[in-house]
Amino acid sequence: MEGMPRCARARRRALPAHAQCVAEPPEAPRGLRLGGVGARWVRLQWAAPPGLQYAARYTALHALPAAADRSAAANLSVRDDGPRTDADGLHTLSARLEGLRPAAAYSLRLTAANHVGVSPHSEPLMFTTLEEAPTASPQNVRVRAANPGELRVSWSAPPQDSWNGELLGYVATWRELGRFEEEEAAARTGSAVAPGWSSAELALGGLRSSARYALTLRAYNRAGAGPASPAAYASTPDGEPDAAPAHVACEALSPRELRVRWSPLPSAHALRGYDLHYAPLHFATCK
């Protein structure tokens, strides 16, 4: 058996009376495989005798240049998963390795150790962790007025080490702000999607003219959407009034003076004033 004194393996042979047992470091773990995977952990399984100590040495492949945890080592808390697996008396052992990065490719090797020394490395195991929703929001979010009923939002991507997978796009969520509490409760909301990690601007149409809006932005990947950015605020520009003044009435005050009355438009329109157009009417006398 691995890690046992050499004389124990030769117990079926007769040994001279002066023979001594020679202890050796264990052999490398065999059959290293993946027993489960998450965004930040993996479960490892392998065949080896029980009673040894095990350590994992792993390296992140294709890591970002600034990544500080490209290579690392960890001692493993081992669990014996059951019966012996072969004629050599090896057990199926397993351990859970934590602290990995989401959507990252790794190369991992195991070593076993006893009181004598450390084994050679196992064959490498290659694996990729699962994606996780982004952990940072888009940066530099700005909103500006465009055409009547339209706002334009621009942004830059969140830091790449927070993507936790392939960034698929962005979701903009907006809410119309009312001037009074009852208007706030009935405020209109909506959302729009900008596909692609490189997207940097989005036009939001179908909004009300002369209305104020709050907008947030989130990045998303296959695992879901990340946190929302701090709210940005903007007002849509004035548009042409969608109705004419109603109940227009005119009365004469003197031979040279008239009084004109009308009902004002709804307060939602930020009006600058009214234009009054008039012209004299000349009546011909028929004989």
Results as ranks from 00 to 15, higher is better:
residue 7 C to W: 01
residue 11 R to V: 14
residue 16 P to S: 15
residue 17 A to N: 09
residue 21 C to Y: 05
residue 22 V to S: 07
residue 27 E to P: 00
residue 30 R to W: 08
residue 32 L to T: 08
residue 34 L to G: 11
residue 43 R to I: 12
residue 44 L to V: 14
residue 51 G to C: 12
residue 51 G to I: 10
residue 57 R to V: 04
residue 59 T to Q: 11
residue 74 A to F: 02
residue 74 A to T: 06
residue 75 N to Y: 07
residue 78 V to Y: 07
residue 81 D to R: 11
residue 82 G to T: 15
residue 83 P to D: 13
residue 84 R to I: 10
residue 84 R to L: 14
residue 84 R to Q: 15
residue 84 R to A: 13
residue 86 D to Q: 12
residue 90 L to K: 05
residue 91 H to K: 13
residue 95 A to M: 05
residue 95 A to N: 05
residue 100 L to G: 05
residue 103 A to S: 14
residue 107 S to C: 05
residue 110 L to D: 01
residue 112 A to C: 09
residue 112 A to Q: 02
residue 113 A to L: 05
residue 116 V to W: 09
residue 117 G to L: 10
residue 119 S to I: 14
residue 122 S to C: 14
residue 126 M to E: 14
residue 126 M to N: 08
residue 126 M to A: 13
residue 129 T to G: 09
residue 132 E to V: 03
residue 133 A to G: 07
residue 134 P to T: 07
residue 138 P to K: 07
residue 140 N to T: 09
residue 140 N to S: 12
residue 144 R to C: 03
residue 145 A to E: 11
residue 145 A to L: 06
residue 145 A to F: 06
residue 147 N to P: 00
residue 150 E to V: 04
residue 153 V to M: 11
residue 158 P to Q: 04
residue 164 N to G: 02
residue 164 N to E: 08
residue 165 G to P: 02
residue 171 V to C: 08
residue 178 G to K: 11
residue 184 E to K: 09
residue 192 A to M: 07
residue 193 V to D: 09
residue 194 A to R: 03
residue 196 G to T: 09
residue 200 A to S: 15
residue 205 G to H: 03
residue 216 T to L: 01
residue 218 R to I: 01
residue 220 Y to M: 03
residue 221 N to T: 00
residue 228 A to N: 00
residue 228 A to G: 10
residue 228 A to K: 03
residue 229 S to I: 02
residue 230 P to L: 08
residue 234 A to E: 15
residue 238 D to R: 08
residue 239 G to E: 01
residue 240 E to Q: 13
residue 247 H to M: 07
residue 253 L to G: 12
residue 254 S to N: 08
residue 283 F to A: 12
residue 283 F to L: 13
residue 284 A to V: 13
residue 287 K to L: 06
